[in-house]
Design a protein around this nucleic acid. Structure first.
Length: 869
RNA sequence: GGGCGGUUAGCUCAGUUGGUAGAGCACCGGCUUUACACGCCGGCUGUCACAGGUUCGAGUCCUGUACCGCCCACCA
């Protein structure tokens, strides 16, 4: 029984309505475990989804509703195709956004040096002065707040009708995610694919943490070129070098000047030394091909570190480090004259520097410029410019580059292998693969995965502390995998006692947490319960699809491919379904402020979940889509129409019998073709076409077919032909509802329940053979033509009535159908239906080259109007 | 500077191997038609961005240009 269990009798409400369907059916689906994953099925019969875990510290906006609907449509289709759908839901509650939200919400700040206070209770209202709490206390607050957020999210997802298995949830800060993150990391470490190194690192001075290349963004900022003179070291006054810089405050960090090897202006100076203004520090003039003769004066100041190019020069020219920026962004104290800070006039240098030490970069810049002006080393006035500056995407101040000890995961060596993985993956739409290749080809360094933050997955290891109390980072103490997850700030390495923490001869925990992407990149492993539930893992991994938006191809998609490549030497999924964004009507990305005005729940309540899903499903893979409440209204109308048309079809379903009438066969044959195309399209993630075609078919079903068979189904042409109509109606309705079910889960379930015991979402996806029934295909081409012919004649009659502004129930005195002989030959098949539907009293035919219908209406009754006063 | 998409009706968009330009919305007109007034019927609307080329024939294929959007790189 493809349709599921039939009820013993059909019950149709008098006035079917959409109101309340969301509550009614979400409760039923939950009670019936309609979307529960059947884990008895082998991998070949499973369709598994690597659902994107939304960031719970943010709020859900229209874009989420949009893209999650796409995934749900495909998941529902696969379920109806007979697959056991593994459709988990994760919550991304790990990382900086949560930290910030918790700080503001509770009025606390994390101080990792404090001990855990089990009796700590957060105040009702956040105090003005933030309360310092320990890392475990802080994490408890994070967990508490995210748990509340997750409830709100889950409610919205259920209301939207996502067919998620709510037994299968995870959180990126949860125990499982921590264990898997740590496990994968330890294995990478053992294989030499993760390593720790002290090196220049991108650094956010507000969050005081390292960040990764993938988390950068450019912002246009005002700045200025300052031309500064460096005197020659040997005192030859005529010789000096002028440079342009936008960061004069880094002058004390200058370690060399650089120009292009072929630049004739500077060739004589290569190998000589110059003296920094203000500080009198001797720095060499060097040659490097990355220096651009066209920029500024052609010579540049190399500082440790002003930008990424400085790092390259520093490394390739073997220059020393002379760092001045501290982790908090302020200039650190420096003693001129000491090693590394030798000066030709240490007292003068110190006097200048003391005025900027402790200042932020921006304030120091102002002061340094004043000093340069006073000393006469600033040539001309600063020339204002606007230039792009690198920011951490969540940060407020430009990134600095600091030398620090960080963990990295090897990526640069894997480029070729990753490009091959990208080609192996099936992208929807295919052109999104180019984004991936672009990113891989543009990688500038290995992935920095350590963050100097608190609410994240800790690195699961310790270091030995030497007899002198210093940490020996080479002497790592690694736990056994069985101990994971663990927190080295509270857990103790094997063979040590808690009192030995941070003591000479004892141990110290790694202080950092992992980049949130280092955990998110393991979502397939987390959802599939890697190394915990081997049976489940084998049934769902590698997964079938990763749905996600295009802006995080460089992060989430790339990182996940990388981790799976390392952990399994395989792709984590076969398909990547890339969704677009929701745009404001003015074509800008839907802004957060606007997203908050138009809340998803408000939209769902106003237009109905089916109406909103209808709009969402009109957005093709990869294509940005305009926010359009008009389409939601259209979707809602479609849902209402489904209720009413279904009511009509089911109102009179007896007798049933063989489908023999031409238009009936034509209807089912057309529908069979749609079923075939829809199945193919959905297999290829082309869901928009399926909705369009099905909708278009459904409207012509209502407008033409229903009108044509209205009389016959009640027995006007005898029981056999009534049976033909009723069977065709019921067959078509059943198939259409199932075609609509992935898109409009609520209204289709409601209608289905009028005559079925079980859920439409567990029903079998329709097939062409089922729709055509026994003997299908015999006369179907003729049937399709007959139906189209009849609809065309009916349309001509309506047009005439409309033109003459007469009611549609006006009888037709004479209808002359002129058409080619082949068409006219179909007339006997449809004549009775046509006469009834068009109220045609006399039907004549004549041969003609093209179809043309001449309609003469019966004379109108004289209209008697009351005389106007 | 490199890459990727886009440009079709007032708006949002389809257009699948090249064969007379489509849908919905909006707009206009009409209709109480026992499934639906949360409805029904009908109508109006186009130099398919521009310029070349291939072809009997181009929205569709090729070349170039312009504009819009996104990604990346450079940013002394």
């Amino acid at each position: 029984m493809p349709d599921g269990l039939l009820k013993s009798s059909i019950t149709v409400p008098d006035k079917p309505a959409l109101e309340g369907l969301e509550q009614k059916w979400t409760a039923r689906w939950d009670a019936d475990a309609t979307y529960q994953f059947d884990r008895s099925r082998p991998r070949a019969e499973v369709y598994s989804v690597d659902t994107p875990p939304p960031t719970v510290s943010g709020s859900l906006h229209v874009g989420h509703v949009f893209s999650y609907t796409h995934t749900d449509v495909v998941a529902r289709f696969q379920r109806m195709r007979g697959k056991a759908v593994f459709y988990p839901m994760g919550w991304d509650d790990n990382g900086l956004p949560t930290e910030r939200r918790v700080q503001n919400y509770f009025g606390v700040r994390c101080d990792p040096s404090l001990p855990y206070d089990p009796s700590f209770v957060a105040p009702d209202k956040p105090p003005k002065q933030a309360i310092a709490v320990s890392r475990p206390n802080f994490i408890e607050l994070c967990a508490r707040l995210t748990a509340e957020d997750e409830k709100v999210f889950e409610h919205l997802w259920r209301y939207l009708g996502l067919s998620v298995d709510w037994q299968m949830t995870y959180a990126t800060i949860g125990r499982r995610a921590q264990r898997i993150s740590q496990l994968s990391f330890l294995r990478l470490l053992t294989r030499g694919l993760a390593y720790q190194v002290e090196a220049p690192t991108l650094w956010d001075v507000d969050f005081r943490t390292a960040v990764a290349q993938a988390e950068l963004e450019d912002r246009e900022q005002p700045g200025a070129y300052h031309r500064i003179r460096f005197a020659a070291a040997d005192g030859a006054a005529a010789v000096g070098v002028e440079i342009d810089t936008t960061r004069p405050e880094l002058l004390p960090a200058c370690v060399a000047l650089v120009a292009h090897p072929d630049d004739e202006r500077y060739r004589p100076l290569f190998g000589t030394d110059v003296i920094t203004p203000l500080y009198g520090v001797k720095v060499p003039v060097r040659a490097h091909p990355l220096a651009d003769p066209e920029k500024g004066t052609g010579a540049a100041m190399i500082c440790t570190f002003g930008d990424v190019t400085d790092v390259i020069w520093w490394r390739e020219l073997g220059l020393p480090v002379r760092a001045v920026i501290q982790p908090n962004g302020a200039l650190k104290p420096v003693r001129f004259g000491e090693a590394g800070w030798e000066s030709s006039d240490a007292a003068r240098a110190q006097q200048h520097y003391d005025q900027v030490a402790g200042l932020s970069a921006v304030k120091a810049r102002v002061r340094v410029v004043e000093q340069l002006r006073e000393s006469g080393d600033l040539l001309g006035e600063p020339r204002p410019i606007t230039h792009a500056v690198k920011f951490y995407e969540k940060g407020d101040r430009p990134l600095e580059i600091l030398t620090s000890r960080q963990w990295f995961i090897n990526t640069m060596d894997q480029r070729e292998a990753l490009l091959a993985r990208g080609r192996e993956l099936q992208w929807h739409p295919p052109y999104m693969q180019a984004r991936f290749e672009n990113w891989v080809n543009g990688l500038a360094g290995d992935w920095c995965v350590s963050r100097q933050r608190f609410f994240g997955v800790p690195f699961p290891l310790w270091y030995k502390v030497g007899a002198d109390g210093s940490i020996d980072y080479e002497a790592r103490l690694l736990p056994s995998e069985a101990r994971l997850p663990l927190d080295p700030s509270t857990d103790v390495p094997d063979g040590y006692r808690p009192e030995q923490r941070n003591q000479p001869g004892g141990f110290a925990g790694d202080p950092d947490v992992m980049d949130t992407w280092a955990t998110s990149s393991l979502t397939p492993q987390i959802a599939a319960r890697w190394e915990e539930d081997a049976d489940l893992f084998a049934r769902v991994f590698p997964m079938d699809v990763r749905p996600q938006a295009h802006d995080i191809i460089r992060t989430w998609l790339f990182d996940t491919v990388l981790r799976s490549h390392f952990d399994f030497d395989a792709l984590p999924w076969r398909h990547a379904a890339i969704s677009g964004w929701v745009l404001d009507p003015d074509r800008k990305k839907m802004s957060k402020s606007k997203g908050n005005v138009v809340t998803p729940m408000g939209l769902l309540e106003e237009h109905g979940s089916d109406g909103v899903r209808y709009w969402a499903a009109s957005g093709r893979s990869g294509t940005d889509t305009a926010f359009d409440p008009g389409q939601m209204k259209v979707g809602r109308r479609l849902a209402i129409k489904l209720l009413n048309a279904s009511k009509f079809v089911l109102a009179n379903h007896e007798p049933q019998g063989a489908v023999t009438a031409a238009v009936d066969r034509g209807l089912l044959a057309s529908l069979a073709a749609i079923v075939r195309q829809s199945t193919d399209d959905l297999e290829q993630y082309h869901y928009t076409r399926v909705l369009e075609r099905t909708e278009s078919f459904f409207w012509s079903f209502c407008d033409d077919y229903l009108e044509l068979v209205k009389g016959r189904r009640y027995g006007d042409q005898g029981a056999a032909l009534a049976a033909s109509a009723n069977t065709a109606l019921l067959t078509a309705l059943s198939a259409m509802l199932r075609l609509f079910a992935p898109f409009l889960p609520f209204v289709t379930e409601e209608v289905w329940s009028w005559w079925h015991e079980s859920s439409i979402h567990r029903a079998t996806w329709p097939t062409a053979a089922e729709v055509l029934g026994p003997g299908g295909g015999a006369d179907d081409a003729r049937g399709i033509e007959a139906l189209q012919f009849a609809a065309a004649v009916l349309g001509a009659i309506r047009k005439k009535k409309s033109e003459e502004q007469r009611p549609l129930k006006t009888p037709v005195a004479v209808a002359v159908v002129r058409a080619p002989a082949a068409l006219l030959a179909l007339l006997p098949d449809v004549e009775a239906d046509l006469r009834a539907a068009g109220l045609i009293q006399r039907l004549e035919t004549a041969p003609a080259a093209a179809l043309e219908v001449e309609v003469t209406l019966v004379a109108a009754e004289p209209v008697i109007r009351d005389p106007q006063p």
